[in-house]
Nucleic acid binder design. Structure first.
Lengths: 205, 205
DNA sequence: ATGGCTATGTGAAATAATTCACAAACAATG
DNA sequence: CATTGTTTGTGAATTATTTCACATAGCCAT
């Protein structure tokens, strides 16, 4: 029975959550898989299949209770629980991500930021005092940080990733265009901005 | 014969390109699908299948000529041809993307940046004069811009996307957590930063 | 040349993800 | 409380993607 949950399902779960949150504000009490699916331009069966991984969350003939489903998804995704993250590399992108509001809305809290440059260390960046990357391990352990956002230059990516692994980081959101080689224990997701733009432009016309 | 090329294939093509570029600098003349695949932790058959969409690019018994393959991929992806993009929304993220070096390396050129705020309009942001979003259509046409990067606040996303469509934009890289509703003619790719972080953290432990 | 080796290119098989389709559950109505 | 209509939950079918496996092409040494 216990089937592996696809990453795509988790992604859609978050989309459902956002719409349910909105619908609840609108005062909507119930919604069918079809209606929810239409908002996202997918199939109702996709919504039902996704939700079925987590039990019987709907009522036949009536659909889903908006508030209950929203809360169930929040629990599944642990949106209610604060999760500490650190951002490593205070270039333009790193600094922008520190200030990014979308993370907070899902329970993430930037607990520390790091850089290697003396011009940045001990200075405030968007309200956070930038730490010397030398103290990575110490600070990550002090704050029990499990997730890191990596925005260092490509040349420093692999080396920094190894330091993160040594420091006990469990997951890395990697914005560098580098294939990080770490043990299987560290979960890595890559966001390759240039690739996204290239893929997009390939398919026009 | 003419089979549809999967988006995943295009993404991997770019990864191949980056490694080939690097290998060429190292002076490597030839490489097998297996060796290239190992660098990316995928299968050789995947590399060969991906490349086979574009013809017989290798030599049996000898593998692929690094320079020739790199150039072929550059041509397929039109990396050699400059492509103009605009960035709409000069918040932290928008400003960071304007300065992002990774785009240039793939032939993208930021040709215009826009915002709605009087504090930003006509001021320089990372070397670009910020334009009033009122002039979106005019400037996009003047520069023949086909691709837009959308980094406005969520509330303004749909409305701005419609303006981009009207202005003749062919593709949008959407950083807002909003499902944009446009005609099928406009290609949209979404980068949902908060979702990526949530998906990542869901799968730890 | 010839033979042995190596690595491609590609149908076929396997795996993964999505969609269909329908029995079963529940709501609503009279 | 029976009947009608709606919508879920889920196997089965479909579609997409990855991997296998091998015939075949080309290199290289003798």
């Amino acid at each position: 029975m216990k089937k592996k949950i696809p990453e795509k399902t988790i992604q859609r779960l978050l989309l459902y959550y956002r719409y349910l949150y909105f619908l609840l504000q609108q005062g909507t009490k119930n919604i069918s898989s079809k209606s929810l699916a239409d908002l996202l331009e997918i199939r109702g069966s996709q919504v039902r299949k996704d939700l079925s991984y987590f039990g019987r969350l709907g009522t036949r003939g009536a659909g889903y209770d908006v508030m209950a489903l929203r809360d169930t998804i929040a629990e599944i995704l642990k949106i209610d629980k604060e999760k500490k993250v650190c951002v490593v590399g205070m270039g333009n992108l790193g600094a922008a991500l520190v200030a990014y509001k979308g993370f907070e809305a899902l329970g993430f809290k930037v607990a520390a930021v790091f850089d290697i440059s003396p011009q940045k260390i001990n200075h405030k960046i968007r309200g956070h005092t930038c730490h010397d990357i030398k103290n990575l391990s110490k600070i990550i352990n002090e704050h029990s940080i499990e997730v890191a956002i990596l925005t260092v230059p490509a040349e420093a990516a692999q080396e920094t990733a190894l330091r993160l692994e040594k420091a006990g980081i469990k997951a890395i959101l990697n914005f560098t265009p580098v294939k990080l080689s770490l043990s299987k224990k560290v979960k890595i997701n890559n966001i390759d901005l240039a690739m996204e733009l290239k893929t997009l432009s390939f398919f026009i016309r």
